[in-house]
Design a protein around this nucleic acid. Sequence first.
DNA 1: TATTGTTATACTCTATAACTATA
DNA 2: TATAGTTATAGAGTATAACAATA
Lengths: 161, 161
Amino acid sequence: MSKLKPADISPELHSDNVLTEFTLQALLGYQIKRAYNHVQNDLSETLAAFDLRVLTFTALVMIKENAGTSQSKLANALQIERPNLVAIIDELENRELIVRERVVHDRRAYSLVVTKTGSQLCVSALNAVKAHEKNMFSCLTAADKKALTKMMLRIRQNNEL
Amino acid sequence: MSKLKPADISPELHSDNVLTEFTLQALLGYQIKRAYNHVQNDLSETLAAFDLRVLTFTALVMIKENAGTSQSKLANALQIERPNLVAIIDELENRELIVRERVVHDRRAYSLVVTKTGSQLCVSALNAVKAHEKNMFSCLTAADKKALTKMMLRIRQNNEL
DNA sequence: TATTGTTATACTCTATAACTATA
DNA sequence: TATAGTTATAGAGTATAACAATA
């Protein structure tokens, strides 16, 4: 079978309803992307029940775990630019999930701390996220998950300068 | 050691330069995300050398592999909404990498076909992407990659309705 | 000078409603 | 009425320049 060249195609519609994607499916990055999209979408739905987006949830968890951190350090940890963190922190503060307190010995910075409400929401959301993960990865054995974690870590280390 | 409650934290900056993230690191989805970000960023850089974004590249590959397909079918395959595909197709057509031809027996639809230039660029870009993958996943053995592919496929199948 | 938080801005990606021309 | 492609628009997420307050 010879391959079809552009000139051989008459202007008619491709008949198949599902397109072939042999080329893309052979790419590991493409497979990771497709699977990760499902995980990401399900995570977003899970967090929507708590009125949280992935980024606000991640910020909340990080602030709880690093009480007293600054917006600069947090932006650095979340790998986002400082200006983009402002709205996220504003939202968490408006919902009284965290507080911004001026630091005594460095009045440029804020000390970020979760409130009791924020801490409780964090626990609830985290439990939901764990349930989401249990469900999403129920097709993997414990050994699979361990191997997968190691591979993801290796990919990161292989490509961090 | 008892856990610190919000009230116990004086408004001082967290002293560590690197924040802890035990909670997030325990989540498999988070590990996949972190690793995938590296892959995605490197892929974007790779394709930028050909003036292609990930989506325009993916569209080009799919059109080459499914000559004569329509924009609706392509949008469906790429999992994006039809309106968002228009600009992508416009760009590929303006660069003369593909052509839009009116279909004879259904004048609503276009038949999408790569040009010779488009086909050649596709081959070059694909070679670069393969090199990118070889580099990104050089830390994984052939068996690792095979297992990873199977796991990603299982996650997708586990979560498709 | 340098840093922290901020504003303004812009660009990409994504999602929906509504239009047009065809079927 | 249904479908293919399109337009307009809006919401996220992300990136940079520049500013005020502070170091």
